[in-house]
Simulated assay, not measured.
Amino acid sequence: MTAAKGFPAFAPQGAGARFATSWWGRAWLKALEDTSLDHTLLAKGRAYAKTGQLGPITVSAGRIAVVAEGEYTAAVHVAPVTPAFVEQIAAKAGHLAALLDGDLPYDLVELLPGVGDLEPECDCPDWGHPCKHAAALCYQASWLLDRDPFLLMLMRGLDKDDLIASLQRATAPTGTPVAEAYAHGTPPLPSFTIRSSDPFGAEHAVAEPLEVEPAPGIDPAALRVLAADAALRARELLVSGAAAVLTEFQDRVRLAATHDLDIGLPAAVQSWRYGGADALDTLTTAWTPPKQAVARAGWQLPGFEVSRNRWSLGGVQVRYGRDGRWYPFVDADGDWFPAGPPEPDPATALATVQGTD
């Protein structure tokens, strides 16, 4: 069961104070402004919000309320969230983590009100929809939402504790108990080989396939890849003591590069083989390097056309990575393709693609 939350009155703000700096706070105000029938009253509401004309704000299930000018009770009603929406949040573990971190993921946009979803009311004599008091309440509420997007859940009828409990129930582990799983014994772990897969000699570890017995609902080929990948990641942890946190795109490229999978991104896969996430970033992102790097490349790569972190001449290109290394590229049918591992200076990287020492 949701509980109401109270927030102290906002002190008067400066004339230049901004409303809603978060994307969800701005969406909240857009719903208000798109619903308004009188933009003059909205302007008065903004002034009331900034000059401290409202008292403490109470947020409860389906409703936010305030006493304005010491005598009028203004409120805004919001429709409650559906159980299906809770399931949508539970579908991704990152949703709860983002909310707890003060962020609202873009794919939870349905949580925000649209045109007509905010229903204002006030016992003042003003017939506006909303009146200046209800409008001021919405503008001040945008400050609260900036700080804590969980308040949207409370307005929708579900507070933080309820949501966490629901997600815990929805994500409760299922399957084979640990003791039973270990009772089956441990199969042999994949062994490793080191091999080169390109003309420039870039080497990477490859786990030997783990033979898996066919079983209902299990794709042996996919399971072999996952098992080999888990072994490689464990090896990285043992060797380095840490594993990088990757985006979904980076991890997809890593899997393809490690296990020779075709994902239709040959340049990205080859970049990963040459230099991992840093090389992939150098392939996909243009950025402005520090002046020292620009000056260094200027005297080592004379005559090259410069565009941000990229030096081009004819069919070759050298890029400066955020990791401080230089990456060679060649023109492949109009697209730049990674041509070798990163080097500590631009001249050495250029020599890689020119075939010189």
Rank of each mutant, 00 (worst) to 15 (best):
Y182K: 15
D260A: 12
A4T: 12
E213L: 08
I164G: 06
T247P: 01
T193K: 06
T82N: 00
T51H: 09
R319L: 07
A11P: 00
Y320E: 12
A243F: 09
L158V: 13
Q140E: 02
R195L: 02
P209Q: 05
V59K: 03
A181W: 15
D101V: 08
L265S: 11
V294H: 13
E121R: 15
Y320A: 11
W326A: 07
A230D: 03
A84H: 09
H77T: 04
G16S: 05
V81C: 01
S240W: 06
M155N: 00
V294L: 13
L189V: 02
A242K: 05
D107G: 04
Y48G: 01
S191Q: 02
G45K: 14
P83L: 06
A242S: 06
E71L: 10
D103S: 08
V245I: 06
F150I: 14
L163V: 08
V206L: 08
W287G: 01
T193V: 05
A205G: 01
A256R: 08
L100S: 11
T174P: 01
K92D: 13
Y106G: 11
Q317E: 09
T58L: 05
A234N: 01
R308V: 05
G6W: 15
R147G: 02
L167V: 13
K50D: 03
L265P: 05
T174R: 02
H204L: 14
D198W: 15
L226A: 12
D198R: 15
A141M: 07
L108S: 01
W24F: 12
F85G: 06
Q300V: 03
A75C: 10
H129S: 09
K291M: 11
Y139T: 10
L96K: 14
P266K: 05
Q300K: 09
K160I: 10
S22M: 09
G298C: 07
A136M: 02
P346T: 04
T176M: 14
S22Q: 08
V109I: 13
A31P: 01
V178A: 11
Y72W: 15
A74C: 09
E203K: 15
S271V: 05
P149R: 09
P290H: 10
L111F: 03
